[in-house]
Write a protein that binds this DNA or RNA. Structure first.
Lengths: 357, 357
DNA sequence: TAGCGCATAGAAAGCGCTTTCTAAGAGTGC
DNA sequence: GCACTCTTAGAAAGCGCTTTCTATGCGCTA
């Protein structure tokens, strides 16, 4: 049947214990012995039995990356960076254990599936779990997630939040590290930029109401308006999904209701692209007739003409850092294990001074 | 410490064997006993130890979905459909085992990472593996993949190809089922459509040269030209990546070299969107001055004005079917387990009759 | 009433690793 | 030259399940 560790041991003329030690590299083995074992491994084309290994060591080599929407580049970029980091982290100083299997789990934004995946990963005794993207703002669900994370942490699973707000810092929080995107500050700067250009009638296309990311960005937007003494007309804010169709629909409604808008801020770049499309469809030029701004600085933000003014989130860096924190003994800088990821304003062609200003 | 099956057995006043049987549902257990066990499971918040279970049963509940590019909606859509199907397939007639953990592994198009992931999934004794997207046309790599798949199949892992060409049908092929996209026929129809509109100077923006998908679509394109007796000028074909930037770059070069082109066919929709952008950037109207066509019929194909003429691939259906084949005892229709997924021409606004025709 | 089969549940032997505990040599210092 | 430490490797006991084999009790038929 399949080759087992015992077969390797036999061929290398050593005990199973020695083979295990060579493969896991956590115990001194004489160079000659090691060579012999590695040769036998290669000769027999031996592949470790993961479940057996996980059972004995009571931790597996699985790292789960939870994403809200697998088809959204925002998550794709982070997940891909995290995976690359984890795959390459084997030899990293401080690395925990050997080669990891980084896998992404798509919750589709559904609270139930988020919980299901967490349970499934718990069942697999995952080495680490990375949760990306905003959390769902439902008290019941948050509590259920927190409880699940506590169970995971108890079993030794490292937990990294990437782009999520920190969990309430209770004593003995289950979370290993949190990378918190500074959505509020970024949004504040973005709207501040538009205000500085003279805009005061600014529409806002928000994301799904129940996401923390949506709320934080909206709060930043409103804070900027308030700071500038500009009244915030609630009718100028519309909620939708984080996608292009949503941007088209919302922009259309917004401009129908108030054709005098001179700028529209979108909760992310994909929505912003939709807003641009909608604007052009009704004959408005960007930015001459309408300034449009996005958020995230996805690659697609520079695909259009003019390129999008947006807020840059270092997704690749954040994803990679999340991966690193997940599989090494490295601990987080920052108080309570929370690292704030900066959100930087990037001014491009899609925003301009208000006419006559 | 953590709750084990023995704890549950003790609480339910039954033997561990009975608990196992209740949880796996593969053996008759009296209703009353089952109830008692399920109560105990709930009371203790018991979660199966996946590795232990996998070790004893010599198969895990992991299903790996390999994708070339996690940030590409083409893969996102298929993967997401497959995941949804697998998560929901637990009770399906013919289902193999219980709840599965469907995870996606991003190879980034790298042959090494493809092999690495396959090995890692082998190590985890995955229940099934789904390989999506075109294969890499390198004899060494193909052989290595085939060998790896053989090892996986030997260990009981089901293997489903989705959007890949069938493996050479050797006796005892390791592949459980193949969903082969009919790229050639689709491409032939698409170019046929342009020829029917009177176009003869048609540019082609191909994908990466080493992918089977690229080759098949290009072959279809050329077959259509040949069938119409239109000479195929190799200079009109440019290879690039499957992304928008590639489309912009290639279209620019193509139109610089031969401004008289009246149509450009792209190897996929994302490239086509880039072609549209490049065309507009040089003042060409689509479709009046230049017809543009894509492939795949991604959601973004209808986001633009005019919407893209393209070839529809039923990605959701294919992904779901792949998921089903992966986790149920269902076998593939079609000879050698190969099912051909049709590619249907979708005519929209981005293609038009040649001027004066 | 004896005997048989069927439905249900327990006992126990692993699955293939990891890791603790133990042992055997090989150096080293006095 | 002897006791001691240090390095290296083996023996063996599980890790928590699944599953085969076995046992029990019950409802039948003859």
């Amino acid at each position: 049947m399949t080759v087992t560790l015992a077969d390797v041991a036999h061929r290398a003329q050593v005990s199973p214990a020695t083979v295990s030690r060579v493969l896991n590299g956590n115990y001194p083995v004489a160079a000659a012995t090691r060579e012999r074992v590695l040769r036998a491994v290669k000769d027999l084309d031996y592949v470790v039995n993961g479940p057996a290994s996980a059972l004995a060591a009571s931790t597996s080599s699985l790292v789960g990356i939870l994403v809200n929407d697998i088809a959204d580049p925002f998550f794709g970029i982070m997940a891909s960076a995290a995976q690359a980091q984890i795959s390459g982290a084997e030899g990293t100083p401080g690395a925990i254990g050997g080669e990891k299997l980084a896998v992404v789990c798509n919750t589709g934004g559904s609270p139930e599936r988020e919980l299901t995946y967490l349970t499934l990963l718990q069942r697999q005794r995952a080495a680490a779990v990375i949760l990306t993207g905003g959390a769902i703002e439902d008290p019941d669900h948050s509590a259920a997630v927190a409880a699940k994370l506590a169970r995971l942490a108890e079993a030794g699973t490292r937990i990294v939040l990437c782009g999520r707000p920190p969990l309430p810092p209770s004593a003995g929080s289950p979370v290993t590290a949190t990378l918190s995107f500074d959505n509020r500050a970024g949004a504040r700067r973005l709207t501040g930029h538009l205000l500085a250009l003279g805009h005061t009638r600014i529409g806002y296309v928000a994301g799904p109401a129940e996401r923390t990311t949506t709320r934080h960005r909206l709060e930043g937007h409103r804070a900027a308006l308030a700071a500038a003494g500009v009244a915030d007309d609630p009718a100028r804010t519309l909620h939708g999904a984080f996608d292009r169709a949503s941007g088209i629909a919302a922009a259309t409604r917004l401009l129908d209701a108030e054709p005098g808008l001179t700028a529209v801020v979108a909760a992310n770049d994909t929505i912003a692209l939709g807003v641009c499309t909608a604007a052009r469809a009704r004959g408005l030029r960007v930015p001459e007739d309408l300034s449009v701004a996005g958020f995230d600085d996805l690659p697609s933000a520079t695909d259009t003409v003019p390129a999008l003014t947006t807020v840059r989130l270092p997704l690749i860096e954040a994803g990679a850092r999340a991966g690193l924190l997940a599989v090494t003994r490295e601990t987080s800088h920052g108080p309570d294990g929370v690292e704030t990821v900066p959100a930087e304003l990037v001014v491009r062609g899609s925003t301009g001074a208000i006419r006559g200003a």
